[in-house]
Design a protein around this nucleic acid. Structure first.
Length: 443
RNA sequence: GCCCCCAUCGUCUAGCCUGGUCCAGGACAUAUGGUUCUCAGCCAUAAAACACCGGUUCAAAUCCGGUUGGGGGUACCA
């Protein structure tokens, strides 16, 4: 049975790069029918935090990557010690100052990487021992290389050791991880050798860089998956974007469902070069997914955002939210955009764009606005077509061009010069607010 | 420093394995025009890349070597 794992360390939130590593593991698992293990690497008791662990699990679920098995390395210390003792007993490891170190013999190690092909390492770059295990380090006065630590002096296992033991015990068949682990691989292969175990297959994913080609960090935008959630990104947009970083479904396809991506997925098709993260393209994809999302679902997702902004209370009018979401569905990259642009639909002290006010409300159209307000006051039903007719009638009676009033009215009603169709906006606001805002426009 | 990985438009990529069909295709972003009450969208158009040098070959983005550039690692962190 094929099995893969994603092994985050709860020393921080789930990173967008980590999410992509998980995604490729997950896609591989689904594409070949393998099971997907989530392993929490919390051996560093100082830096590991429960809060981070919960956030990681939560983000994984939010993205839709459910695991088949879940393990915590902190609960497996006795297993690691058991294997360390075995190596000690066999003379393959030795103790020093309470730590257990592996006797590392100089040799050439060949690693076949599923993405990169053969990679050759010379372990004499990390230690020099002859075939008998005699340490030659330092003998010529230049080399100060050390054997690999298996168990630290405080009794906790070192990363490379528990990684090997766990991948073995959990029967992982293919290790798919970031490129930053390439140089750990020969060290781990040495441990497999000492244990007499056959290593799994390896695939090292290219890293994700920031927009400038540097290391992805908080400075260049959100890195935690939970931050994207808070900004109002849809999980499917994030997953779609992430899979495009280093992999392509082929052809000219950009938007792709997870189901068909899985059908087309192949590790061999993953790129070797690092990819730069583009917030613009993620936003574009999110816009596309919001556009085609079911409005009811968007309303459900939006409610907590609206509550937090105090746009709605506990007993909100769901239909009103639905109407405004419908109107703005095609006009937002993230939910935050909606909160910003549709404020006028929820509150009366909405933001007013100074430039728009200056441009469109500097001419006091007091008379025209009061005629409009009066007309709207008796427009029934107060819908898009009736209000448009009423509006156009007034414009004709006043011998004006439609645009002479369209723009000022939009600014008066919404606080800005851009937005959805004016009549859609008016219908959304309803008679009472529309009339009131028109009357107060020049007050 | 040493070890390892990588290199197609500004960005993500297709093509590279199995050289000719590629004066290199798509998407994001950018610019211009059209539609429209504005924005968004949609449509059309434009500008935009095989890092460099050498080799192999009748022929190289594609194969080989080197250079340069970028990235990763070099912890009793993971």
């Amino acid at each position: 049975m094929a099995k893969v794992r994603f092994a985050p360390s709860p020393t921080g939130y789930l990173h967008i790069g980590g999410a992509r590593t998980a995604l490729f593991n997950w896609m591989y698992a689904k594409s070949v029918g393998a099971s997907f293990v989530l392993r929490i690497e919390d051996t560093d008791q100082q830096r590991s935090k429960k809060e981070f662990e919960l956030e990681i699990l939560d983000s994984m679920k939010w993205l839709g990557m459910e695991w088949d098995e879940l393990y915590y390395q902190s609960q497996r210390f006795s297993l690691y010690r058991e294997y360390a003792k075995k190596l000690l007993d066999e003379g393959k490891a030795y103790q020093e100052n309470g730590a257990v170190l592996l006797k590392t013999i100089a040799q050439e190690i060949k690693l076949y990487d599923l993405i990169r092909g053969e990679i050759v390492f010379d372990t004499s770059n990390f230690v020099v021992r002859d075939e008998k295990g005699e340490n030659l380090s330092g003998k010529d006065g230049t080399l100060l290389l050390k054997d690999e630590v298996l168990i630290k002096a405080d009794g906790s296992p070192a990363y490379n050791f528990c990684c090997v033991i766990d991948d073995f015990l959990m029967e992982i068949t293919c290790v798919i991880r970031g490129e930053d682990h390439i140089s750990n691989t020969p060290k781990q292969i040495l441990i497999y050798q000492a244990l007499g175990i056959k290593p799994p297959k390896f695939a090292h994913l290219p890293l994700i860089m920031d927009e400038e080609g540097g290391r992805l960090s908080k400075r260049t935008g959100a890195v935690a998956v939970s931050d994207y959630r808070k900004q109002g990104f849809l999980p499917e947009a994030i997953m779609n974007y992430l899979m495009l970083l280093g992999w392509s479904p082929g052809g000219d396809q950009e938007m792709i469902s997870m189901a068909s991506a899985i059908k087309k997925f192949s590790i061999k098709k993953i790129n070797k070069a690092a990819a730069a993260f583009s917030m613009d393209k993620l936003k574009w994809l999110n816009n596309q997914y919001i556009r085609q999302a079911d409005t009811n679902r968007l309303v459900d997702l939006m409610v907590p955002f609206l509550k937090e902004k105090k746009y709605i209370q506990e007993n909100f009018d769901r239909q009103a939210i639905k109407n405004s979401v419908d109107l703005f569905k095609g006009r937002m990259d993230t939910f935050l955009d909606f909160l910003d642009r549709a404020d006028f639909a929820f509150i009366d002290d909405f933001k007013r764009d100074a430039e728009a006010v200056a441009k469109h409300l500097s001419v006091k159209r007091t008379k025209e606005f009061s005629v409009l307000a009066e007309r709207f006051g008796r427009t029934e039903p107060f819908d898009v077509s009736s209000t448009e007719k009423a509006f156009r009638d007034v414009v004709a009676e006043l011998k004006l061009e439609a645009s002479d009033l369209v723009h000022p009215v939009r600014v008066a009603l919404t606080g800005r010069a851009v937005g959805p169709s004016l009549f859609e906006t008016i219908a959304l606001l309803g008679k009472e607010k529309t009339v009131e805002r028109l009357k107060k426009a020049f007050a």
